[in-house]
Design a protein around this nucleic acid. Structure first.
Lengths: 153, 153
DNA sequence: GTACATGCAAACCTTTTGCAGTTCC
DNA sequence: GGAACTGCAAAAGGTTTGCATGTAC
């Protein structure tokens, strides 16, 4: 674990209290590191017999978003996917077959985006680039047998 | 109206029937040309006293998506926004203040995306690039008075 | 005539909220 | 002690579905 995030400080700075539930939700998010959806967190807590209601998980995630520890990245199939927001900015390749999220970053694209915004006198705040398709693993697997679509989860 | 789309042919080719409701929904979409959400269609039909239930509108939009006349473009604030799918591919600047969608297209970005996909042995199917920020009009208006956030609609 | 489409209402899913009881500081 | 937080259950969107009825072909 390279970076140590002082969740207590971050919460208290903004007048939020440090509660058992918030700590558990936060630990689980850090443990995941990758992309996840709300139900992942809810189920994990259930399994570990830690109690935090679904409502609390939602409320906690919203707070974490507010203090910048969490990003709401992708809306796909009526679900919202999150990731830890302390990483550097990047975009995503999303596999339509297995639901995998692959991260990439490209400076050229970012530069061109800036240029486009200038052309339109548009002040950018954030952006989202998602490329949907079939990942390497699934392409290889397709050689053997055809498989149906899946929704990421 | 430059292009004439033969909705009857497109539907029948795939074994769909040509019904009053489908024609009305389709006409309204063509009339709009820009971006819209389901409720826009539902309300319009109500106002014109044309009857197509909300369920039928949903079902019709899904069929139109299937036959490629419609694209589901953007998920924002738990809503789905659509646009006519016969236009050339383009991406979007989205104003966080007034909800305006501005279209742009950039070949360089598309090329770079291809390159990235190659690097990852990823077979792209479609992509989505959305830049969120403040549009020119809203920036100008901000000089006079500060205004709160709005959700596009 | 019959397979398919529609309307309605109910169901579903994700997310938010009101409120009474609990916890943190 | 009191403001903030939690859990629950209910509500609130958006979207889908089951079923009886209606319609295109």
């Amino acid at each position: 674990m390279k970076q140590k995030i002082d969740i207590e400080k971050l919460l208290k700075e903004r007048g939020f209290k440090l509660t058992k539930q918030r700590i558990e939700v936060f630990n689980e998010i850090l443990r995941k590191r990758g992309h996840f959806e709300i139900e992942d967190i809810v189920h994990f807590l259930r399994k570990k017999n830690l109690k935090a209601s679904r409502a609390t998980v939602y409320r906690t995630l919203n707070i974490l978003k507010e203090i910048g520890l969490l990003k709401e990245v992708i809306k796909f199939g009526n679900k919202t996917y999150y990731e830890v927001g302390t990483k550097d900015h990047h975009d995503h390749l999303i596999c339509l077959n297995c639901g995998k999220f692959i991260e990439f970053h490209n400076d050229e694209i970012e530069k061109i985006q800036e240029r486009i915004c200038n052309e339109f006198n548009f002040k950018p705040v954030y952006h989202r680039l998602e490329i949907y398709g079939i990942c390497e693993d699934c392409l290889n697997r397709e050689d053997d047998s055809k498989s149906g679509d899946k929704i990421p989860g």
